[in-house]
Amino acid sequence: MYTPPSARVSAAYRQVDLSSQVMSASPHGLISLLFTELRTCLVGARDAVARKDVTAKVRLIGKASRLLDEGLIAGLDMRAGGALAENLHSLYSYCLVRLTQANAQNDAAVIDEVLKVLQPVMDGWTEIGNQART
């Protein structure tokens, strides 16, 4: 498959930008980046289901699942986090199961459900960052 040079250059710049954001981010900022990318993947996967683009759907749901598992779940401190960490672990694990179902069933409504379930956590995380800056 041919990719125009301008698309390759643009992708390279996006990768460098993301790498610099990660390298300079605080721990709170890293989680914010994970949430931002997770939301982008979920919206993209939902749109891919609507377009019947199976390749994009599988890629985006796979990436969203990795962000949940290897980023958000792996980042939980179960010992220090107590009940909050346990609840987040349960929520993220539920979302992983639902994304697997959405992928298998080509169900955009399930992807919307995952977005809806995660939205309060994402909003709360953003609010924590806003309060810390003031």
Rank of each mutant, 00 (worst) to 15 (best):
A12R: 11
A12T: 14
Y13I: 12
Y13Q: 13
R14A: 15
L18E: 14
L18G: 05
S19E: 15
S19I: 11
Q21H: 09
Q21F: 01
S24E: 12
A25D: 07
A25Y: 02
S26V: 04
P27S: 09
P27A: 10
H28Y: 08
G29F: 05
G29M: 04
L30Y: 02
S32G: 13
S32E: 15
L34E: 11
F35Q: 04
F35L: 05
T36R: 15
L38N: 04
T40I: 13
C41H: 07
G44R: 00
A48F: 02
V49H: 02
A50P: 07
R51K: 10
R51A: 09
T55C: 10
T55H: 11
A56T: 08
K57W: 06
V58E: 15
R59Y: 08
R59D: 13
R59N: 13
L60F: 00
I61A: 00
G62E: 04
K63V: 03
K63I: 03
A64D: 00
R66N: 14
L67I: 12
L68T: 06
D69M: 06
D69Q: 10
E70H: 08
E70Y: 04
G71K: 03
L72G: 03
L72E: 05
A74E: 13
A74C: 05
A74S: 11
L76W: 02
L76Q: 06
L76C: 07
R79K: 14
R79M: 09
A80W: 01
G82T: 05
A83R: 15
A83H: 13
L84K: 10
A85L: 02
E86G: 08
E86H: 10
N87M: 10
N87G: 09
L88P: 00
H89Q: 12
S90L: 11
S90N: 15
L91V: 08
L91W: 03
L91E: 06
L91S: 07
Y92Q: 04
S93K: 08
S93R: 09
Y94M: 12
C95D: 01
C95G: 00
C95V: 02
V97L: 12
V97M: 14
L99Y: 01
T100S: 12
Q101G: 03
A104G: 11
A104P: 06
A104D: 12
A104H: 07
A104L: 13
A104T: 11
Q105G: 07
Q105L: 12
N106K: 05
N106E: 13
N106R: 05
D107F: 01
A109G: 09
I111Y: 00
I111P: 00
D112G: 01
D112Y: 01
E113R: 01
V114Q: 04
L115N: 08
L115I: 11
V117H: 03
L118R: 01
P120S: 05
P120V: 04
M122A: 09
D123M: 05
G124N: 05
W125A: 06
W125L: 07
